[in-house]
Computed example of a mutant assay.
Amino acid sequence: MRRALALTAATAVATLPLALAGPATAAESDDASVVVVHAVPDLTVDVYGSADEEYTADEALLTDFEPGTVTDPVSLPGGTYNLAVFPAGDDPSGDPAIEATGVEVPGGANISVAAHLDEGGTPTLTPFVNDVEPTAAGEGRLVVRHTAAAPAVDVLAGGDPVFTGLTNPNEEQADLPAGTVSAAVALEGTTDPVIGPADVDVAEGAATIVYAWGSAEDENLALAVQTIDGLHSSPSGVPSGTAALPADTTPVLLGGIALLAAVAALGMGARARSRA
Results as ranks from 00 to 15, higher is better:
108 G>R: 10
174 A>Q: 00
69 T>C: 03
174 A>H: 00
66 E>K: 14
129 V>F: 12
141 R>C: 00
134 P>D: 12
75 S>D: 12
112 S>P: 05
143 V>D: 03
132 V>F: 08
185 V>I: 15
125 L>P: 11
186 A>N: 02
82 N>F: 15
75 S>W: 12
174 A>P: 01
153 V>D: 03
116 H>S: 15
114 A>C: 08
183 A>M: 14
152 A>T: 07
96 P>H: 09
82 N>T: 14
138 G>C: 01
175 D>Y: 00
153 V>E: 03
102 G>K: 15
95 D>A: 15
105 V>D: 01
149 A>M: 02
108 G>N: 07
158 G>M: 08
182 S>E: 10
69 T>A: 12
74 V>G: 01
171 E>M: 11
66 E>I: 05
169 P>W: 10
88 A>Y: 14
98 I>D: 05
103 V>K: 06
68 G>N: 06
155 V>Y: 05
143 V>A: 13
124 T>D: 15
186 A>I: 02
185 V>N: 07
162 V>E: 14
81 Y>L: 12
154 D>H: 01
109 A>Y: 04
159 G>N: 08
73 P>D: 06
135 T>M: 00
189 G>W: 01
174 A>N: 03
91 D>A: 03
143 V>H: 04
99 E>T: 07
157 A>C: 12
165 G>M: 04
103 V>I: 08
96 P>N: 13
178 A>H: 00
96 P>I: 08
144 V>I: 14
146 H>K: 06
110 N>G: 13
67 P>Y: 09
102 G>F: 15
151 P>D: 14
113 V>K: 13
147 T>S: 11
138 G>L: 00
159 G>S: 08
119 E>N: 10
172 E>R: 02
164 T>L: 10
149 A>F: 02
91 D>C: 03
87 P>R: 04
179 G>L: 00
84 A>L: 12
145 R>A: 13
101 T>D: 13
147 T>K: 10
188 E>S: 14
158 G>T: 04
85 V>C: 14
91 D>F: 01
143 V>R: 13
79 G>L: 01
135 T>A: 01
88 A>M: 14
90 D>C: 02
101 T>R: 14
136 A>I: 00
101 T>G: 11
182 S>P: 05
88 A>C: 11
112 S>N: 12
